[in-house]
């Protein structure tokens, strides 16, 4: 009993410390966003602002067209997530359920591309897109991100764990491949799909380098790129940057809270069923 209580206490203590450390940057962001410019630079730093400067949020919004950035971010995130979901479903199904010539070699090649670091692809991708005349357009922001080898791999493994007899049964019952994919495979592997969507959405929402490279005009910028507006030759307006950043991460936090149950389910199920 006592040992139980002790070990429980230790566990919760460690979790509390770990959770606190995780939350610290968020707290610092919120705290900074409510400070005056002078207070931001104060040494030693102050944990809490003397007076909450809610005005910072208004000012931040006036400094850059955040409405436009938001629209861009939403368009890019939604479309690239949707695109990735479709390509992933089709590819994972083909690699796990269809028999075609060269399937396994092709899949190995696909996995091989995961070894290539993303930075190496920046230049060739940019050149390709510029030849297509897509620089500074939504195509450039979305299309290169509508397929993910990792997602295909992840979903394929989940598909493989679904008994083969189910697809046989569906065929005997008169369901074609698309029907079977939609009505049986997708519902069964929903936790994995939620994980994929969530990872993609976060990645896409937070993407910085690529949107920065392929956009020139203000109108095409996404939120993370837009945050650079607070950095000028004269320095960085940290309190405004933090106010804007707090606004940028808000949708992701809401999304996470909404899907939290599915993520935990997906992870725990991955553990049991493999």
């Amino acid at each position: 009993m006592i040992r139980d209580a002790l070990s429980k206490g230790t566990i919760y203590g460690l979790l509390f410390v770990g959770g606190g450390l995780m939350l610290l940057p968020f707290f610092w962001m919120l705290s900074t966003s409510l400070k005056t410019p002078n207070e931001v630079m104060l040494m030693p730093p102050r944990w809490f602002p003397a007076h909450a400067e809610w005005q910072n949020y208004v000012k931040a919004f006036q400094m850059a067209p955040f409405g436009r950035y938001l629209v861009n971010s939403v368009i890019v995130t939604v479309l690239s997530t949707l695109g990735e979901l479709i390509t992933t479903l089709l590819a994972a199904y083909a690699f796990s359920r269809l028999a075609f010539w060269g399937r396994d070699v092709l899949f190995s090649l696909l996995l091989g591309t995961m070894m290539v670091p993303g930075e190496v692809l920046l230049v060739p991708n940019y050149v390709t897109l510029s030849k297509l005349g897509w620089i500074d357009r939504y195509e450039a922001l979305i299309l290169p991100w509508t397929a993910s080898v990792f997602a295909i791999f992840l979903l394929r493994q989940h598909f493989l764990s679904v008994p083969k007899e189910l697809s046989y049964a569906a065929r005997v019952d008169g369901a074609g491949d698309f029907r079977f994919l939609r009505e049986v495979m997708v519902p069964i592997t929903r936790p994995a799909l939620v994980t994929i969507v969530l990872l993609k959405t976060i990645g896409s929402w937070n993407a910085f380098l690529w949107p920065l490279i392929v956009t020139n005009s203000r109108e095409m910028r996404t939120l993370p790129v837009g945050l650079t507006a607070f950095t000028t030759e004269a320095g960085t307006a940290y309190e405004l940057l933090m106010a804007a950043a707090a606004f940028v991460i808000l949708p992701m936090i809401i999304l996470f809270l909404m899907l939290q149950r599915h993520i935990v389910e997906g992870l725990s199920r991955a553990g049991i069923k493999g």
């Binding site: 008994p163 007899e165 189910l166 046989y168 049964a169 569906a170 065929r171 005997v172 019952d173 008169g174 369901a175 009505e183 049986v184 519902p187 069964i188």
Partner: peptide, 27 residues
């Protein structure tokens, strides 16, 4: 298979796990 007028029962039954019994039979 779907045009052979056959019904098949598999060793592990291969019921669609996310559907109710009614939906399974109605599939």
């Amino acid at each position: 298979p779907e045009r052979r007028s056959i019904g098949m029962v598999f060793q592990n039954y291969a019921l669609y796990p996310h559907m109710t019994v009614f939906d399974n039979i109605a599939f």
